[in-house]
Write a protein that binds this DNA or RNA. Structure first.
Lengths: 191, 191
DNA sequence: TGATTCAGAATGAACGTTCATTCCATGTTT
DNA sequence: AAACATGGAATGAACGTTCATTCTGAATCA
């Protein structure tokens, strides 16, 4: 196994185990096992567990961004762009439940809070597209007159909740329900 | 200190520490310290840490319910009832940040997932008022034609997100913004 | 009243376990 | 052969839980 291969295996194993059992249900020894690697080897690639966790978060963000923005065109009507970004994000989560579960774990932990605090301006997912879209919508008075974070809450709050329910098996989403949900979010933010 | 006093102190200390640092940042020894009791004393009142955690959850639920439903009348117009329940819940969270942080921790943990799964199967809903309101709205076609869990997501998702941002200091809510936020949620669920 | 007894509440040091991290003998590459 | 990478046993810190002991205050007795 080549050098970068091992790093990749470690990251993959960490994602699987942490997404399923949380940070504290993911001992380094288990991650090493699942990656097919010695416990000590992890420390050749990551200074410690915290670094592994935040590094994994960064990699997930980078994976998501291009998928979301694929087929996204800034020239389309505002509403269409909103629906595109919402649908793309929700579908990404549904198709990548491990990524979703990991991101949730991260957000609801001291890691995530510190991370967001550092980013106070960048806000959620670090995806600038969302911020730009909402800023434009507020400026053009297409969106309601509330602060940006409220818009984020109105748009992403239901989205995350629905994704979680689907992944945990409490509901089953299909294309129709997804479309209706995103349109409902649009009703929430539009003026 | 009388007998129920100690139990109360333990519960209070556990709420404070867990809300602030999470389940794993709350060793029993620290909870005992904060409560002003010996480490072993906790085990006179709670079989183990898990029982303490779920018991505390149950107590919080019981505390919230009467506050939410105060002044709530089933005869008022549907929209008014929705706004009342939404506003009451959001304001409760803002006024009781420890409660909110604890409930979030609980929901985003194996405890919470297991808890919800039991509820779904057992039909024994904790938030009956909310369930009744939404059921009625769907039946009367005041609400959009989507499954109940989607309505929950549309209504509570933004609410929790906004409460979290406020409590973490990322935004500052006032009565006007709260009212606009709940009304936006109404736009999301209404037909 | 003051002394004595006693049940159960409270205590915290000690225990066994789990975990992140370190260490080093061994293997691999250059 | 030198330099580096690896695995997994060893380490020590932290944790939840236990239990032998101490404390407390109500009940009983003289």
């Amino acid at each position: 196994m080549s050098k970068p291969d091992k790093r990749e295996e470690i990251v993959r194993a960490a994602l699987e185990i942490i997404a399923e059992h949380g940070f504290h249900g993911a001992p380094m020894a288990l991650i090493a096992d699942r990656a097919g690697v010695g416990a000590g080897t992890i420390y050749r690639y990551f200074e410690n567990k915290d670094v592994l966790i935040t590094e994994l978060y960064r990699e997930l963000e980078e994976r998501i961004y291009p998928v979301i923005t694929e087929g996204y065109s800034e020239v389309k009507a505002f509403r269409e762009r909103f629906l595109h970004l919402g649908t793309a994000l929700l579908k990404y989560f549904i198709n990548n439940p491990l990524d979703f579960r990991y991101l949730e774990q991260f957000h609801n932990s001291p890691y995530g809070v510190a991370f967001r605090r550092d980013r106070l301006l960048g806000e959620k997912e670090g995806c600038d597209v969302y911020r730009e879209l909402f800023d434009e919508g507020i400026a053009q008075q297409v969106l309601k007159d509330v602060p940006l974070p409220i818009h984020f809450a109105l748009a992403f709050g239901p989205l995350l909740s629905v994704a979680r329910d689907h992944i945990l098996g409490f509901i089953t989403l299909d294309d129709l329900i997804i479309a209706r949900t995103i349109e409902a979010c649009w009703d929430a933010v539009r003026r």
